[in-house]
């Protein structure tokens, strides 16, 4: 490699790394400054580390409720999708008339720009009496993200050797016990991969959360964080602190499980 090539390569890598990290570092530092210092000293370390911004942010808006709702909707939708994907993948291991058509139907939404469906979904959720509820949001996420989870789980379950099912069947295992004792346990790595991906995707969703909820009892962090911008425009550090709180759950998990998460977020994409 020529010296010139080497310099170019390192420059590109470092530039993109700085673009990624600098705003985040700036955000964290700014969340610990006073409002005046954000303007007077935008780049430096805080002169006085104001950790109280965080408690003030929690006091200003019910962030704990937003977090609870986000986690609830993400967890609930993930559990629903994984369960439905597992049972459907297992059912589709069996050949029957229309099995290919069923498979296509379950997957057709994967390439759909789902935002185009926000109006009908808004009315369907209203008709089901689920407007402004974590349950409603979880079900909508479960429906919209189902094809993504299903593809990962199905691809994984299909790699299970057919002989294993055959042997269990010969031993007299029932339809259900083959599912619970063999198919589901053997597919759990795929289910975990899909689960990580779905949890992060649902936790980070904004559009449907903002059209389907109106009060703090059902609103998520993604919706709530914006209030700091509209109502607390005078106090930016609080908005920064709230943003950090909104980012923290996924970033902390990412720091622990980064390899696993990178694999999960791109899973099923190279099939």
């Amino acid at each position: 490699m020529t010296a010139m090539g080497k310099i170019t390569r390192w420059t590109i890598l470092i530039v993109f790394t700085l673009i990624t990290l600098l705003p985040l570092i700036w955000l964290i530092l700014s969340s610990l400054k006073t409002n005046a210092e954000v303007f007077s000293n935008p780049f430096g370390l805080p002169q006085e580390w104001k950790f109280s911004n965080y408690s003030d942010a929690v006091a200003a808006h019910p962030l704990h409720l937003y977090l609870r709702n986000s986690l609830g909707a993400a967890l609930l939708s993930t559990v629903i999708i994984i369960t439905a994907s597992m049972t459907a993948s297992y059912a589709l291991l069996h050949r029957f008339r229309l099995s290919r058509l069923t498979f296509s139907f379950l997957l057709f939404g994967i390439l759909l720009p789902v935002n185009a469906l926000m109006t009908p979904i808004f009315f369907i959720v209203n008709m089901l009496g689920l407007y402004n509820s974590v349950m409603g949001l979880a079900l909508v996420y479960a429906g919209l993200f189902f094809p993504l989870g299903f593809l990962i789980v199905k691809t994984y379950m299909d790699t299970t050797p057919a002989e294993i099912f055959e042997a269990a069947r010969i031993d007299g295992a029932s339809f259900h016990s083959i599912f619970f004792r063999i198919a589901a346990p053997l597919t759990s790595p795929g289910a975990i991969t899909a689960g990580i991906f779905l949890m992060i995707t649902a936790f980070n969703e904004l559009l449907f959360a903002s059209i389907l909820t109106t009060d703090a009892d059902a609103q998520t962090v993604q919706v709530g964080v914006r209030y700091f911008l509209t109502t607390y425009s005078a106090n930016y550090p609080l908005a920064f602190a709230a943003t950090v709180i909104g980012i923290a759950p996924t970033v902390v998990i990412y720091m622990i499980l980064s390899d696993r998460i990178v694999a999960a977020m791109t899973a099923g994409s190279l099939k």
């Binding site: 629903i80 999708i81 369960t83 439905a84 994907s85 049972t87 459907a88 069923t102 139907f105 379950l106 057709f108 939404g109 759909l112 789902v114 469906l117 979904i121 369907i124 079900l139 909508v140 479960a142 429906g143 919209l144 189902f146 094809p147 299903f150």
Partner: peptide, 10 residues
Amino acid sequence: PAFLLVTVFL
């Protein structure tokens, strides 16, 4: 379950 999800929400 999968059928219901895809039918109702997609």
